[in-house]
Design a protein around this nucleic acid. Sequence first.
DNA 1: TCTGACACTTC
DNA 2: TGAAGTGTCAG
Length: 532
Amino acid sequence: MANGGDQFGLAERPDSDSMDSPKETKQKNPGYTLNSPASPQKAPSQPACNADQNGMEGIKVFLHDRELWTKFDEVGTEMIITKAGRRMFPSYKVKVTGLNPKTKYILLMDIVLADDHRYKFSDNKWSITGKAEPAMPGRLYVHPDSPATGAHWSRQLVSFQKLKLTNNHLDPFGHIILNSMHKYQPRLHIVKADENNGFGSKNTAFCTHVFSETAFIAVTSYQNHKITQLKIENNPFAKGFRGSDDNELHRMAKLQGKDYPVVPRSTVRQRACSTGSPFSGEGRGLHGSPEAVGSPFSCENGLSSGSPQELLRAPPVHYALPHRQLQHGQQPQVYHCTKRKVENCSSGNRQHPYKKSFTRSSPSEGESYYHPSSYPPPPTGLPNNPLTDSPYSSDMGQRQACMFAGAEPRLDELNCTSWSYTCPLPSAMTPMETYPPYTPHPPYSSSPQGSRLSALAHQSSPPLGEHITHDPFQSQSSGLSSQSSQNIHSRQVSPPLREYPRYTPNLSPPLYHTLETHTRIKCGVPEWSAAS
DNA sequence: TCTGACACTTC
DNA sequence: TGAAGTGTCAG
């Protein structure tokens, strides 16, 4: 992530062997040198692709609208989470290349804790306020087009804009459950579908892509006003809040039940911003990084620039080594919001009102960190790979997004993860029984469907490696250090992956299934090493 | 911190 | 035309 890390206090990744983003390296740490051998981004021999990765090595993913993501990231992206579920904005859209046109792939996303902290926003800056809440059910969002051929995925942008975030731990809709005031990192997984158009069988290959600039802090209401402004300026649905003419006065008058004059919201904002403003002046850079005075969007050239460093951009090390990072990081406890004079307040916004369209073809789509599956250990939490335990199967071809849920796939906890899943019912496969929306129930037990599926899952997912005990952080640390700057993890997950029973549509509620597989897998370094 | 009603928007 | 996605605001 560009500066978001700074915003959240996680940007500085002193470890030279850490997985870092190209952009960040370029912008934040111009002098930053990766330990791993630099290789041209487009070179087929780049670390991202080992020869034995079963065709996953050539896959590249570019984040759509990276500029916008970067803008948010520089301020410290916040995503609203609601009980009913809220979409992400900016939307997570990617362009995928390098897929075998005839091979079927499954694209899915998950969102994992980026670190072990809980944050608070005070004095116009984010700071750590404690330890993160206990893990909650982690869910996967399977792109509704899955499985589809490489040709299909490559044909157009792959959009995950329908993915929704919720803070309802009992969410029955399959939305991704997050905790407010916690920092998260979305991840994209590309899985080669097996013969049944599913995954989970032996030799399933997959790769994980992480765009650090998409990290965000989940909130129930926006904390940083600048984020609010960015949302309003860029999200068409929030167009009504773009106060730049008399409409706002009328609207506010109406809201307040007053006649003119009414102070426009923007004016109020401006006033607020200018007072002790974190946005007023000092430049937005953190830690005195050079980028503070540089172009906030210099990343536009991003990975596409062909910089060797870009290729080596590893996933943010803080996923796996939050503590280490803090040790090395500057001012780990307090993270300032980035500030930009012009954009801070409404005044600045009005000077350049809504120049950016909501969706524009980004000239600078950033390539994600590519995690070669053959590289041990799993880069972030995935590898306890959601795929490894996911019950995804051929039935997923229903062209519906599916969610898999389980223990929170925290990036910094690699040893054991239990996965459960929820699946939307394909419209073409109307369920026999309805699923009561918003019916509070123990997500993985009380529901009849849940119970049945859970049982099914249990059958199919025998505990693995439960006897293995180790400090997740420690293991991660060692694992990551060993893999050094490897940021690409495309792997054959033969050993870890297991067969899962086909998803039975008959058991599907109209919306999503939620069930806990209780699959416990060992995701430590040894196993991954073995896998590779 | 969080929730729900609300006005406004896109689709 | 209505459903659904927005941030605002009061509580």
